[in-house]
């Protein structure tokens, strides 16, 4: 009987625990954190990169690739001509070298 009373007392105390729970204030940074999640760096991105649309990005990429190809072929051609001239001069195969003073 005494044990039952004791158990009942414990149960009542457990129910009363709900009344003892105090209000917990939300963290002062909660609003900022949530706003950052809702609007992630939208403003900064808008100001800096909004003009650089995907179409423009693609056009820039194509231009860069074409420029690179052009530069590479030009460089190759010049290099080739220079090498041939140098070779011809070294072995006396150029037209200017064939003109002899003896003729």
């Amino acid at each position: 009987m005494k044990a039952n009373n004791n158990i009942q007392q414990k149960i009542e105390n457990t129910f009363k625990a709900t009344e003892a729970i105090k209000q917990v204030p939300v963290s002062p940074f909660f609003k900022d954190k949530t706003m950052q999640h809702l609007f992630p760096q939208k403003e900064e991105e808008k100001v800096v990169w909004s003009w650089f649309s995907p179409k423009l990005q693609l056009a820039t990429l194509v231009c860069l690739v074409l420029l690179n190809i052009l530069a590479f072929t030009k460089w190759k051609e010049t290099k080739y001509d220079e090498n041939v001239n140098l070779f011809a001069e070294t072995y006396g195969l150029t037209t200017s070298s064939s003109t002899s003073l003896l003729n």
């Binding site: 105390n13 457990t14 129910f15 625990a17 003892a20 729970i21 105090k22 917990v24």
Partner: peptide, 19 residues
């Protein structure tokens, strides 16, 4: 980890939440 629950009530509250 409920800051609104006082230390003396912690065990009782745990039992209540489990129940």
């Amino acid at each position: 980890n409920h800051p609104g629950i006082v230390l003396e009530q912690k065990e009782t509250s745990e039992t209540l939440f489990l129940a």
